[in-house]
Computed example of a mutant assay.
Amino acid sequence: MKVLILGGTQFLGRHFAEIALNQGYRITLFNRGQTNNSLYPDAEKLVGDRVKGDLSALKGRKWDIVIDTAGYFSNLPHLVRATAELLKDSVRTYVFISTISVYPEFQANGDETLPLYPINQELPQQMNAQAYGTLKAMAESVVQEVYGEQGLIIRPGLIVGPYDNTGRFTYWIRRISQGGEVLAPESPELPVQYIDARDLVQWIYRLTLAHKSGVYNAVGPDYCLKLGQFLATCQQVTGSNATFIWVPREILESYKIEHWQELPLWLPPNLQNTFPCLSNSKALANGLNFRSLTQTIHDIWQWDLVEQLEYASGLLRDKEIAILQSMGKINTI
């Protein structure tokens, strides 16, 4: 199979590239040639810039599928339209990686038929969660318009794994591995959904080989995972002596803790039992499967021990200590 990857040098794109190469696919990476350019010397590399409209390297070529992971661009629908229309007669399947954030309101066990953000509006001027969801919904509409039954739209939730430069999942693994009293939000019963990037990518390639199209929520696992179980598994995998201090919502809010970004997996009250509770029934019926939580945590932990990236997400240690001390849970750490 011949695969065109738009990007291919960061997080999810790297997994698309590596798994394709391991499967013996012929891959072409199209990007600006400025990030991790030494990766994948056996891959064909085309240089261009979607933001500047430079797509000339893609003209007159043929691939079986194209993978488009475009994310935080204020003109995302225009970028997607430019590549989608240019490649209309050059690829069999256009795979667009969208997001569950296209849903303005979440429901427990909600499926792909949940209403989306309106697409008939001006492009958002400020990038926030609503704008991101709106732009992705607009881009989905473009793919469906241009490709119809040849379009494959994937809506992941939290994507995790090696190469993750957001740190939202990795924060917990790293923090728990350090041991001591660990601040945990509210209750061990809070629901958690995530998907390992490698499981996501392998499944998408299987879908394309089967000539599948349509829209799929891509969330996991295939059971009801709770925060307490996730944190305990991090403790088990890393061999940590961590103990968890469950801090009530009102205390976290009094310290103005930012949901999701500052304290990953913790959400506002209206989202805590809906956002991480979407249905993945359609994806499961079409072959999505998952490696174990233990394996995912282990691989991220080992990768993080080597890379030691600095993340924008995660609770600062000094702030964690201050909150726990205010509760009388610790004297010093």
Rank of each mutant, 00 (worst) to 15 (best):
P118M: 07
I333N: 13
W172R: 03
I257T: 15
Y94G: 06
K226Q: 11
L46F: 02
W301L: 11
T238R: 11
L123C: 15
R61N: 10
E122N: 08
A17E: 05
N280W: 08
R168P: 03
K88H: 13
E149P: 13
K2D: 15
S279D: 13
R155T: 10
Y194H: 05
R81D: 06
L315S: 07
K45R: 13
G7S: 06
P77R: 03
P264Y: 10
L21C: 00
L252K: 04
Y255M: 03
Y216E: 08
N217P: 10
L252P: 02
L46E: 00
L293I: 12
V192A: 00
C234L: 05
T93E: 09
Q261N: 15
Y40I: 00
E310A: 12
A131V: 06
L271R: 10
A184F: 08
E310P: 04
Y94Q: 08
I176H: 05
Y94F: 14
V51D: 10
Q10A: 09
N36K: 01
L135I: 08
D64A: 00
V146E: 12
F290N: 00
L271M: 15
L86E: 12
D222L: 01
Y25E: 14
Q107A: 09
A131G: 12
D49N: 14
D64K: 13
K45F: 08
Y147P: 02
V91R: 07
Y117N: 08
R198E: 11
T9K: 05
L158W: 05
L190E: 02
L209R: 11
E44R: 15
C224W: 01
L114R: 12
Y132D: 01
G214Q: 07
E105I: 13
I154A: 04
L12N: 01
Q236W: 14
F244K: 10
R61P: 07
F96E: 02
P115N: 15
G24Q: 10
I204G: 05
Q325W: 07
K2L: 05
I297P: 00
L284P: 04
N165M: 14
N109S: 14
L158S: 00
F169G: 01
Q229M: 06
S90G: 08
L79E: 12
N289E: 09
L267I: 07
E18A: 10
N217V: 13
S101A: 15
Y194L: 14
L6I: 15
Q178H: 13
T274Y: 10
L123H: 08
N286G: 03
W203L: 15
V142R: 09
G167N: 09
V51Y: 07
Y216V: 11
G53H: 06
R50M: 12
E18Q: 12
G8N: 09
T35P: 02
D54F: 09
P269C: 09
